[in-house]
C-alpha cells in the first residue's frame, strides 16, 4: 500500500499550495508513489473523511499557514492525531509568516479597523462576525477569531519544517523523497541547509570585506546593478541572516532577500539578529548620523520580523487576556 499524504492550509495566502502545484510534471511521480488523502485546495475531501481515518494512518501531513482561528487549530490537532509526521510547510506555519504581523495589534483593533474604520466599510449597524448566529430558525457557526496568530509549532508538536514564502518545489520534492526512502534527519530539523544565503549567492565574490552603508535604498529608488552585492549597493538584503536553500531566487530576480527562509538553527530571534547585523554595517560612529541612516529603513518590524513575529521572543503586542 502506498504511503498516505495530506496537505492542509491555515492562515495563508495560497502561495504554498502553488509550490505543490509547481512540482509540475514531478507531481505525477509523487502521485505514483503516494496516495494524497486530503488536499482541500485541489481534491474534494471533507473534514469528516479525515475524522473517519484511523489515528496515525497518514504518513505525513504538510500544513501551511499560521493558526489564527479555532477551526485552523482544530484541523491542526486533528491532522496531528491522524498523521505520523507533521511538516510545517512554509514560513507562516514555521514562524507565523506575514499574517503574524497582525500580532502588532490586538483583536479588537483589527476588528474595529476592518468592520468600522476602513474607508471602504459601510456598516452602520456595527455588525461583527459572531461564532454563533441564528436566523429564521437556522443556526450558523463560524470559527472563533483568536486574539493572536500562532505558528503551527505553538499549537501542536511539529516534526519538520520546510521554510520559505513559499518553499521551493525542490525542497518539497526532496522532503517527499526523504520520506519515501526513510532518510529524514532527526526530528525537529528544518529541511534546508543550515548556512546563510551568502554561501550560495551568485554575487558572493562582489561583496566587499568592509561594508559601510551610509544610505539604505529601497528597490524603487535606485537602478539596481545585476552583478554586484545588493548590500554594497545600499539595498537592505537580509541574505547574510537568512537560511540558504532558496537557490537565491530573489537575488537572481535582482531583488534583495527579505528573509523568508528564516534564521539558521543557531539563532533564536531572526529579527533581532538581522537588525543587529545590519545596524553594525552603518558607515558612521556618530550617534545622530547612525540614527539618520537607520531611519532610511521603513517599517523596521515589518522588515526584520516580516515572517517571524509570532515565533519571536518578543512576539508583538501583549495579548488581550479576555480575547482567548
Amino acid at each position: 500500500m502506498k504511503p498516505k499524504l495530506a496537505f492542509y492550509w491555515c492562515a495563508s495566502c495560497g502561495g504554498c499550495e502553488e509550490a505543490v502545484v509547481d512540482l509540475a510534471e514531478k507531481v505525477l511521480d509523487v502521485v505514483a508513489a503516494v496516495d494524497i488523502v486530503f488536499w482541500p485546495v485541489a481534491l474534494d475531501f471533507k473534514r469528516t473523511d479525515v475524522e473517519a481515518m484511523p489515528d496515525g494512518s497518514i504518513a505525513a501531513a504538510f500544513i501551511n499557514g499560521a493558526i489564527r482561528t479555532s477551526e485552523q487549530e482544530e484541523m491542526a490537532k486533528l491532522l496531528r492525531r491522524k498523521a505520523r509526521i507533521v511538516v510545517a510547510f512554509g514560513a507562516c506555519a514555521q514562524t507565523g509568516g506575514v499574517p503574524g504581523l497582525a500580532n502588532l495589534y490586538d483583536r479588537e483593533s483589527l476588528l474595529r479597523a476592518v468592520y468600522s474604520e476602513s474607508p471602504s466599510t459601510l456598516n452602520p449597524e456595527g455588525t461583527r462576525p459572531a461564532p454563533h448566529y441564528a436566523t429564521n430558525g437556522a443556526a450558523l457557526e463560524l470559527p472563533v477569531f483568536w486574539d493572536r496568530v500562532r505558528a503551527l509549532g505553538q499549537v501542536i508538536p511539529v516534526d519538520y519544517s520546510i521554510p520559505g514564502c513559499p518553499p521551493t518545489p525542490k525542497l518539497l520534492a526532496d522532503a517527499v523523497a526523504a520520506l519515501l526512502t526513510g532518510s529524514l534527519p532527526e526530528r525537529g530539523a528544518v529541511l534546508a541547509p543550515d548556512k546563510a544565503l551568502c554561501e550560495e549567492c551568485p554575487r558572493r565574490e562582489s561583496k566587499p570585506d568592509k561594508l559601510a552603508i551610509t544610505r539604505f535604498r529601497r528597490p524603487h529608488e535606485t537602478l539596481i546593478e545585476t552583478d554586484r552585492c545588493l548590500l554594497a549597493q545600499g539595498l537592505l538584503c537580509l541574505g547574510p541572516a537568512t537560511r540558504a536553500g532558496c537557490e537565491a531566487r530573489c537575488i537572481q530576480g535582482n531583488m534583495p532577500c527579505t528573509g523568508c527562509f528564516g534564521a539558521t538553527s543557531r539563532v533564536r530571534d531572526f529579527g533581532a539578529k538581522a537588525l543587529s547585523s545590519i545596524a553594525s554595517l552603518t558607515g558612521s560612529n556618530d550617534e545622530a548620523e547612525i540614527i539618520r541612516i537607520l531611519e532610511n529603513i521603513p517599517d523596521p518590524v515589518g522588515t526584520f520580523y516580516r515572517y517571524s513575529l509570532p515565533a519571536a521572543p518578543l512576539p508583538g503586542k501583549r495579548p488581550n487576556r479576555a480575547g482567548k
Binding site: 548556512k195 570585506d209 540558504a244 539558521t264 553594525s280
Partner: peptide, 25 residues
C-alpha cells in the same frame, strides 16, 4: 562548517583579529 562567508564580521573587529579566507569562504 556553517559560516556563510558573508564577511559582516571582518570589517567590524576593532582589533583587526578577523580575516577572511577566500579559499574556504
Amino acid at each position: 562548517e556553517v559560516c556563510s562567508g558573508c564577511k559582516t564580521c571582518v570589517g567590524l573587529c576593532p582589533y583587526n583579529a578577523i580575516s577572511f579566507l577566500p579559499e574556504k569562504n
